[in-house]
Structures are given as C-alpha cells and as structure tokens.
Design a protein around this nucleic acid. Structure first.
Lengths: 209, 209
DNA sequence: ATATGCATGTAATGGGTTACATGATTGT
DNA sequence: ACAATCATGTAACCCATTACATGCATAT
C-alpha cells in the first residue's frame, strides 16, 4: 500500500536547502571567482580563524563533495609534475545564487561562543587563585599576539579596494581582541584586590595536606 | 601470541580521562555543592550563555549519566506530589577532585568563536550593501539587549561575596559586548563612508567627470 | 480547553574531529 | 637523512541537536 501521507519527502524539493554555516564559509571563499583546491581552501579558511573557527581538512573535502552534489561547485583535475595532482574547485552560477541568498536572507544568528577561560573564571571558587591568575595572564598574552597579527594584516590591506570588507573585519577584530585583553587584565586586578576573607573556611577540614 | 606492544590500551587506566568542556561545565555547576536535577542544571547552564553556549537538555542528561558512570556524581530520587518526581544529582569527592584538576591544569585553549555576522561582513562583496547594514544594525540591537541584561545581573551580584567570580565574569561580559556593539556601529559607518567607485561594473563612466 | 512549566528520557541524524593512509617534492 | 609542504582521502568515533514521546500540575 502506498502511503501518501508519509512525512518523508523526496529530497529533490525546491526548498532552499538550509546548509550549515560551514558550507557557506567554503562557498564564500570560492565566491571571489578563483579556482581553489581543498588544500588551498583549508589555508584560506585558517585566515577566518579570528572570527570563525577553521574546520579540519577532512571537513573541507566533505563540504566540497556536498556542494558539488548540489551543483554549487564544479571541479577539474590539474596535472602537475613537480607536485601531486590536484583537484581545483570553482563556484557555479547556482552556487553564486545560493550564496547571495544566504548573504541577504539568512537570519541574524546569535554568535556561538565557547570561552573556556571565562568558564574557568566563573568557577574560580573551585581552583587555585594563583593558577587562575596565571591562566588569565597566558590568555592575555595569546590575545596580544593575535592583535599584533591583525594589525599587520590591517596595515597591509587597509588601503586596497579589493580588501574593503576584510579590512573592516580586521578593524572589528582588533577592537574585539583589545577588549578581551582589557577584560583579562581587569579580571587579574580584581583577583589581586580581593580581600582574602572567605577563602579558607570551606576547605579547612577535608583537604588532604 | 600476546602483543605487548599493542597501542590499544585497556580503558581502565588511571589517566585523567580528558572530558569535553561541556562535562566540566556541568560538573562546575554542581561544584557549589547543592543538589540539582537535570532540569535545573539546564536552566543554570543557560546563565552561562553570555560566554559559553548552553547545551540541549538531552545533552545535559547524557553528561549526567557519563559523570555518574565515572563516579563524579551520584543521584537520588525525590518523590513529589504536586510535581513529577525528580532525580537530583550531587558531586562526589572524586568529582570535586576531577574538577579542581581541570581548573588548575587544563591548558589555556583558544576561544571557539563562530561569528556568522562577521562572516557575512567578510564576504560583503557578494551581498546587498543595504541588507548588510541592516544585519549589522540588528546585531547591534541584540547586543544592546544583552548589555542591559548583564548590567542588571551585575548590579544584583556585584556586592555579594558569594558571587565574587561571577561578578568578574559579568564585568568581562559587559566590556566584551560593548566592544561588539562599537565594532558593529563602526562597521556600519565604514559601509556608509565607502566611496562607491568599485561597486558595480557600469561605474566605468565616473572617470569622465 | 489549552497552554505553559516541570521533569525525564530515547531515536535519528548530522556535524565535526582525530587518526590512519599514501606518496611525491623541496629545503636543511 | 629528515622534516616540512603539497595533496587527497577514508574510518572510527564522539559530540550535540532536533524531533519524538510521556505525563502531571497550574494558570488562563
């Protein structure tokens, strides 16, 4: 008996095919029009690391297969003599359309943030205060390096029209990481300022000393 | 023949059992010492949303089962007449140890950030500039609301010793979200300021002026 | 009556990582 | 010689979400 009421729909419907943002980040890197291999895409994706995490290379290849199945990209083989052969991908017209649709119509999603350093700060009662200070100090230093990198990138691209949008992003990033550094340093000061009043009571009895 | 060199190790070794941070966030919420049900834990986890995403409730229950199997938490059933019965969890001494070990010895991991708004800004060339401005505007407004919430929380807890660490986190959050708002508003200004030179192909006549 | 909150859980699926696998070229 | 870079991919696993499922109590 044929079940006409089956909720299973044949996957060739015309619906816009909500893809995960990772797919769009790959598609976006191809939206500039050049041909890129999976390997090159991985490296480009690493450039987004300041505001968007970089997927594993296996994930990039998986995305490319999916995008090709959807008709959003095509590939061709490139023979090389002094390097292993490669497969370079190019965005299609359908891919451009899909990407523009996402750009213009995707909802404004909340940022996904997993800040394990702040998580540890939140649970500060359960750790060693000096170690916590050290963690914040390390974090502030890591952030300082990122700021250096971003300033370098910003200086390189800020007067080039072709990098208009990335330059705005770099500026955003500098502001963001400066706020992070300030927040970390402020937190360290708060820890130092703390009156040591309520520290010893709790752990006095069961701590194996 | 017995393979003494086998890299497979029997999973009951004494190693610290690297757990995902989500496990520690659940364990951390129990580290204050009170008994909590999965339902209550989910609500508490939502309070971390400003700096750490909140897992689905099914994930919370899964974590509790895992933590119990590891001996880090125990549960007891609580009979209720006017509410469904519940299962409340409490951290064990082993759980406290594991949590403190994580607090004091976990490496300073990079923040995991997936900022889809900035991603779209980065790929601004492929979208409608007015829509992009609107997206940034919406984002700035969402952020403003978060700042309001955080200020409220901060005012409530900032003078209470028991919330010493969360108060520092709230302050951090306010600084972070203010930086986000500023960055969004600055980006909007940059978009407005933009000389419209390279906006479309039919702009070739502008040099005849 | 209907929706919302309390409370717990399973099933199906998807997203993503790590480790494994291969192999050539270039630089030290 | 050794490591690093280029290049592509599979397999196993795990983290996590969404949807499904149940059922009582309270408020509207």
């Amino acid at each position: 008996m044929i079940d006409f009421n089956s909720p299973r729909r044949t996957e060739q419907s015309q619906e816009p095919e909500r893809l995960p943002n990772t797919s769009y980040s790959v598609l976006g890197m191809l939206s500039f029009g050049d041909e890129l291999s999976g390997y090159q895409l991985k490296k480009r994706a690493d450039n987004l690391r300041f505001f968007y995490w970089s997927p594993a290379h296996s994930q990039i290849y998986a995305e490319l297969r999916r995008l090709e199945k959807l008709g959003y990209v095509t590939h061709r083989e490139v023979r090389q003599t002094r390097r292993p052969d490669k497969r370079v991908y190019r965005i299609t017209a359908a891919g451009q359309d899909a990407f523009e649709t996402w750009m213009n119509h995707a909802p404004v999603e909340p940022v996904s943030l997993k800040h394990s350093v702040v998580l540890r700060l939140f649970f500060g009662h359960a750790g060693d205060p000096d170690r916590l200070s050290q963690v914040l100090q390390d974090y502030a230093e890591q952030v300082s390096e990122v700021i250096e990198d971003l300033r370098g990138i910003s200086d390189e691209i800020s007067d080039q029209d072709q990098f208009f949008y990335p330059a705005i992003v770099a500026e955003w990033g500098i502001g963001y990481y400066e706020a992070e550094r300030n927040a970390a340093l402020t937190a360290i000061r708060r820890l130092d300022e703390r009156p040591d009043l309520f520290r010893s009571d709790e752990e006095a009895q069961s701590d194996t000393a």
